[in-house]
Each structure stands twice: as C-alpha cells, then as structure tokens.
Design a protein around this nucleic acid. Structure first.
Lengths: 355, 355
DNA sequence: TTGTAAGCGTTATCAG
DNA sequence: CTGATAACGCTTACAA
C-alpha cells in the first residue's frame, strides 16, 4: 500500500551528485558554496521526484522534531477548547510544525501515559491546557521539556503561562451596564472558588464603587454555572425587593437561565432587564433572543500566544533562559442586544454615566 | 533544558550485555531464547534507568510510527468535532499510538500542507473527517496511506467510511411523535441539499406514511439551520391553518428558534406543542427549557470506529486488502421533556398509536 | 544464549 | 566546490 517515499539517495542519483551535496543545497547550508549549476540540477531533480525529507530521520539526527504536544484535561471535548487547538496549530504550521493532541479527561494515568508517549516521540515542547482557568501542579515529566501553560498558572518557576484577564472582564461588564445608565446591579457568580470567580467579582465591584453605586444597590449571588443555576438565581434576584435592572452573569449558560426567568416574570430583555454574559460561547450568545452582550474569552489567542512562546523557548540557545513571560488576555466585549437603559432611568443620571 | 534521554546503549552497559540482547528482551522477540537471569538483569537495568525506547528511531527502522493523523475541515472548531478527536484518541492510545490533529478550515492549501507535514512524519494512516455529513473527494496525497473517512463518504473505492444513519434518525423522530399521539406534523429541514436533509426527510416521511398519516397533515419546510431560521419557519407553520402539534427540527439550534416562536405565540412546550431536535448538542438540548428530546449524533463512536478500522488496515499484511467496510451509526433518541400528547388528542386514537 | 554489524534517512564533520 | 563517512537510536539477519 504505502509505496516507499523518495529518499535523498534517489535525488542524489537523479542529479548525479552525492547525498551530501543534495543535503547542502536543499538546506541552504550557510558557508557551503555549491556551484550554481549543480544547485539547480539538484533542485530540479528533487522537484521532479517530488522529494520531501523524512522528518523522522531529520529529527533523529538533529534532535529537533518540529512537533509539539498539546495536552489538556478537556481540550477536545468542550466548545471553547477547539479554539485553543486551532490557535496552537496555526502558529505551529506556520513553522512547519505539527501538533499532537492528548485529551486526558482529568485522569492522571491517562495524562501520564499520554505525555510519555509524546516524549518518546521527541516532541520539542508541550502545551499544557486546562478547560477552566485554574492553578495546576505540573506533571513531573514536563520538567524535561519546554512547557507553556494555557488557561492555567502554576507555582513552578520558569514556566510561561497565559490566562484570561478576569478582573478586566468584570470591569468591562460593569462598564457596559453603567454606561447604559444602570444603578441597581447584580452579579450571578460561580459557586466554585476559582480565579475566574474572584477576579470577575473584584473587577465588577471595583468599577461600581468607582461609579458611586451604593453597596446595597449591588447584589452578588452564586449559582451553578448552567441555565438552571442562572434561572434560580435570577428568579430570586428579580422577585425580591429593589430588583436589579442589570445582571452580569458568570457565563453565557447562566445568562440562558436568566432569560427564561425574565420571560416567565414578564420582563422583557433589554427593555425591562439588561443582561451581560461571559464567554461569548458560540451557539448560545448568538442564538439567544435578543442576542446576548457578553465578554469574549480569547481561546484562540491563548493557544497562539502559548505556541509562540513555546517555539521561542525551544529555539533559545540552551543557556539563555529568559524569565518566563506570562500574559493575561483581556477579552473584548461583544455588543449585541441584551443591554439597554434601565426602564425608569433618570435622564440626568444616565447622561452623567455616559460622560 | 532537555537533558538527553536514556538510550538502549546505556541500558546495555548497565546490564552488562549487548544492545541486541536488550532489544530482544524488551521486545519479547519470539523465537529468541534469552537466559532468564539476563532477562531480569536487563529488565531491572531498564527500570532503574527509566528507559523508554525512542519511537523516532524505532519508526525509522521498522517503518511504523504508531502515529496517526486526524485531518478535518473543522475538526477542532465545532462542539461536535471534539468528540471525534476523543474517540480516535482513545483507541489510538490503547495501542500506544498518538494522534496529530490538523484543522484545515476548508482551505485547500492548508489541508495539503498539513497532510504533507504528516506524511513526512511517516504517520501510519490518516483519519479524514468533515464537520457535516457529505461526500468528498479525497486529497490525492492520501492515496499513499491507509485512510478512513469520518462523517463523510467518497467515491474512491477501497476507503472505509462511517456516517450517521440519517434515515433511521428521521424514522426515530417520527416514531417519538407518533407514539405520543400526534397526527399533524411538520419537519423543518435544512435548506442545503445534503445527505442529512434527504435522509432524515425520507425516514420521517416513511414512518408517517406507514402510520397512516395523510399527506396534507405533514408539512416539510426548509430553513437555515440556526435559531433564526427555526424561528421564522415555526412562526409560519404555527400561524397557518391546521398548525402541526409536533415539529421535528433538523437540528437542536433550529429547535431553539422554535422554542422562541412558541413562547411568543403563547404555546407551551410540550403541552401545546411537541418538538424533537437532532444532534443532542450539549449546552443547547440540555439547556433549553423544557429539556429538548432529540436524536443523538454519535461523534465519539464515529471517531472510535474509524480509528479501529484504520489500525486494522495498517496492520493487515500488504496484500490482504479486504473490501472497505462502511458503517451508518444509528443515534439513540434522548428523551427529555419536549414531547407530550397533543392538546386535543382523542383518547382512542392515542391508545392505538401506542400499541 | 549472546553479540556483530547492516541499515532506516538524515545531517555534519572532515578530507579531497 | 564536492564527497566519504560517522553518527542519531533502534531492529534484525546472521555469526559465534
């Protein structure tokens, strides 16, 4: 089936030179002067035969495989994750590299086996990604290879990482609502105590305080991050006294539940209630009606940034260990149709906020 | 950074034998009798040093890399696709193989480059997947390697493929609605003329006819497969005369639009209107309220089936080319809460259908 | 039972 | 300017 691919030897024969020469010209080895004529002769022979070097052989010799691994807990099984793969793949391919992906599903043994399998294939480096932003402990085997974390940070020094900028996400959500004139607000936060929960709340509160919103005009409740959780939380929020006119949701899925609660209570979005989500999860943010204004999570960019860093470290001369760079990516707010001025907004007040 | 990994030579030295012997025992080469004592000596040496063979070197020698490629148009960027990766990866890993993934984004040149890059790395075979079920023309380079198609079929003979069983999907949807007692039905089909559209309609109609539903009691309309499309179609369907009491949607996203239309028209699901979707797309089917009854697309299984077939072909002795197997996977119906008896159902009629 | 050596397809060193 | 040849780390005839 697999007819043997053409090798450098065949090219050499075809061109009537030695394989050394072929290697020289095809790799443009610096300092090796080759007669222009031989050069073209070799080039033509290679083209004629459709020669492409065997990367395995190259790797064995050069100790560089031009191959990286992407291992993650749910890297393949969540809608976001794919974007990470894509970002990583795009920068990899731009350098003629390819990426292995290993989905561990939180199984320690699978992770370990997967990484070993990659190492045995001499990957040049590994991208280690988590589905939700958190702190991780690096698998010990990764100490041996250049590694970059995606959507996670770790205490091991010398390992670059990139995560979403949760705080500014919270700030931006607050700003969107404030700019529309809202003065009574709520945040339906995640029940889990994770960086995203802390960060977003911090940013959200900070901006409200700065805008002079009184503490008892901002409510922060927690819920499961799914439609059911959002529904429950929103019902409680909206049926209490002094209900918020604007709700910031920990995720678009939560917002989905808020939409339902609002509909049941006869509240129209955005006329009676404004809502902003988080994630910009395709099919949800876009599919809801009216379209959900939300903060985007830049998974593609995280994947790309990480791959970029990884290659940088791979290519850096052995000793040259620069301090590990880290990045917090601020996601843009995606304006759709779920935010409007509050129903009873006082003109002067609104104008002040817009200024 | 990357301290050199331990090689077979070191193990040989540690055990005081030749590398040949090490290879023999570690690979359990049949027909090679090695003294039990040396055997354990080697094993222990290997373990002590933490030796793991370099797969690149092995591959170069054996012409088998234990590595496969998964290339697809949107293999990493859609919620379904991840499951395909996972299915493929799981069977790969169970054979100590790893998978490269390449997302082509429908760009021919990217696809070509990606595949070349894989071939240069001597992948043993390639899984070629498409996001939506369709016919494809195989990239010419794939003629050289074992290949299996996922979610796609092709005319090239000798290439195994696996696709969803669209027809039975349509049948099952019809059955669910019929069993609940519905007699006036509609199908919101995809505007695009693709296998899924033909197949599902065929199955759906067949069962209705078999159940004695009159032709003018079943309406089939087409729409864009997104919430907006579903909304428009549903509005038209539901505001016409003799509106259907049960709607089968081409996709869960379409169903999402149907939910909205129903809500606007004051129709309660499932009391006034039953709906069944297609895909069982996580976060949508589950997140809608009431939960959407839908037909599952078995992406994980398609990935796994394909990988299984691929390895079978890779391992088959050169000449042994069995006819290419193909499979249509029938997805289970996921019962949730969007289907109930029609509002004005006549008892006798319903009972008859349940029988 | 164990070891020598050739070879997988390259790159890199060193002579010519 | 060009070409032998040794390595990269491993498997596998073939010898001993």
């Amino acid at each position: 089936m697999t007819q043997r691919r053409v090798t450098i030897k065949q090219v050499a024969a075809e061109a009537g030179v030695s394989i050394t020469t072929v290697s020289h010209v095809l790799n443009d080895v610096p300092g090796k002067r080759v007669h222009p004529e031989t050069r073209t002769r070799v080039r033509e022979a290679a083209a004629r035969l459709g020669y492409a070097p065997n990367v395995l052989a190259q790797s064995l010799r050069t100790q560089r495989s031009n191959t990286i691994g992407l291992v993650g807990d749910e890297i393949a099984t969540t809608p976001f994750a794919g974007k990470i793969i894509l970002g990583a793949q795009d920068v990899a391919l731009s350098r003629d590299a390819v990426v292995f992906v290993v989905n561990t599903g939180y199984q320690r043994d699978l992770e370990s086996r997967g990484i070993d399998e990659l190492l045995r294939r001499q990957v040049d480096g590994i991208l280690y990604a988590t589905m939700y932003h958190r702190q991780v402990e690096l698998p010990p085997q990764l100490a041996a290879v250049p590694t970059v974390l995606i959507n996670a940070s770790c205490t091991t020094s010398g390992v670059p990482w990139v995560v979403p900028d949760e705080v500014s996400g919270g700030e931006d959500a607050a700003d969107v609502l404030l700019a529309a004139g809202h003065r009574r607000l709520a945040f339906i936060n995640d029940v889990d105590e994770i960086p995203a929960a802390f960060g977003r709340e911090e940013g959200f509160r900070r901006r409200l305080t700065a805008a002079g919103i009184r503490d008892d005009d901002v409510r922060v409740v927690t819920a499961e991050t799914d439609p059911a959780g959002g529904y429950e939380a929103a019902r409680e929020l909206l049926t209490g006294d002094k209900p918020p006119t604007g709700i910031f949701c920990f995720s678009d899925r939560v917002a989905m539940g808020v939409y339902r609660a609002a509909a049941e209570l006869g509240l129209r979005i955005p006329d009676d209630l404004s809502v902003v989500g988080f994630d910009n999860q395709e099919f949800i943010a876009e599919g809801l009606h009216p379209g959900l204004t939300t903060i985007e999570l830049r998974h593609y960019d995280m994947g790309a940034w990480a791959a970029e860093q990884l290659f940088e470290r791979i290519e850096a001369p052995a000793g040259t260990r620069a301090a590990a760079p880290t990045a917090r990516l601020r996601g843009p707010v995606i304006h759709r149709a779920s935010v409007a001025p509050p129903p009873a907004a006082h003109e002067p007040q609104r104008r002040r906020n817009l200024a």
